[in-house]
């Protein structure tokens, strides 16, 4: 089956990432496919490139990036992202900021990409904050 997942919570403020990651890994183990993982609301903070993982804790950013290496699309809501400071190089230029902050392997996309991923998938599963 084809799945679209949504992550609603920020790191260190929710278990949203742990749930979404483990669920996505189980999907791939069972040979399901993932149409897209959409980062919405405070979930956009998952894609911040400037995060530093405390010693002894799991590096969530690395785990997301590993999923991406398996062909999973990591899509950050652009409207939610830029207002919270998660910007790629294009947006950095557009808004004349000093640095970009979107981690590698993530993309900024419009809400249309959430809806089309839902339309293309058999299941939509949301991981609350």
């Amino acid at each position: 089956m084809k799945y679209t997942l949504a992550i609603h919570g920020a790191p260190y403020a929710s278990q949203s990432a742990q749930h979404g990651l483990a669920f996505a890994e189980a999907l791939l183990r069972q040979e399901h496919s993932i149409e897209r993982i959409f980062f919405f609301h405070e979930g956009v903070y998952q894609a911040l490139s400037t995060r530093v993982t405390p010693q002894g804790e799991e590096d969530l950013l690395a785990k997301w990036q590993t999923l991406s290496n398996h062909g999973v699309e990591l899509a950050v809501c652009i409207a939610g992202g830029i207002k919270r400071g998660v910007i790629n190089e294009d947006e950095r230029k557009r808004y004349e900021k000093n640095s970009n902050s979107l981690a590698e392997h993530f993309t900024l996309v419009g809400l249309g990409q959430l809806i089309s991923a839902i339309n293309n998938a058999d299941r939509y599963v949301e991981f609350s904050a």
Binding site: A22, F23, A26, L27, R29, Q30, R123
Partner: peptide, 8 residues
């Protein structure tokens, strides 16, 4: 998680 996926 495998059973979680199966339920979905």
């Amino acid at each position: 998680y495998d059973a979680f996926v199966a339920l979905t």
